[in-house]
């Protein structure tokens, strides 16, 4: 546990509305360009994911995810205060699931209506 510790203010809440996958994101900053509330700032280090500077101003509209040219680079994560009560029951088996559970069921891959 040998690590440097800093004097920092408390994290803004919610913490991380958007998770970037640095292996997929190429730092094109389309999301920075279109975010309505300017939550994201271009990273000073080129070709890397933007900085989520104002997570507390995110509207969770998901437009950055939608407009991202590299699917999988950004994931929207709802605030725990909301997501923790999103749950569903499988009608036939009576099993309960919830958003964010530890061992989730396999994804449902059906796309939206087109």
């Amino acid at each position: 546990m040998d690590r440097r510790v800093y004097m920092v203010p408390n994290p803004p809440m919610p913490n991380i509305p958007l998770q970037f996958d640095a292996a997929v994101c190429n730092g094109c900053n389309v999301c920075v360009k279109i975010c309505r509330t300017d939550v994201l700032m271009p990273n000073p280090e080129r070709l890397t994911p933007p900085i989520v500077l104002y997570p507390d101003e995110c509207w969770y509209c998901g437009c950055c995810v939608e407009d991202c040219p590299r699917p999988g680079a950004i994931m929207l994560v709802h605030p725990l205060n909301q997501s923790v009560v999103v749950s569903w029951k499988r009608k036939k088996t009576g099993e309960s699931f919830r958003l964010g559970m530890k061992d989730p069921p396999p994804p449902n891959t059906r796309p939206p209506a087109r």
């Binding site: 803004p12 809440m13 919610p14 509305p17 509330t37 997570p55 507390d56 101003e57 995110c58 509207w59 969770y60 709802h78 605030p79 205060n81 909301q82």
Partner: peptide, 8 residues
């Protein structure tokens, strides 16, 4: 913004 940012 402290609860849910702008989400709610």
């Amino acid at each position: 913004t402290e609860l849910n940012g702008g989400a709610a």
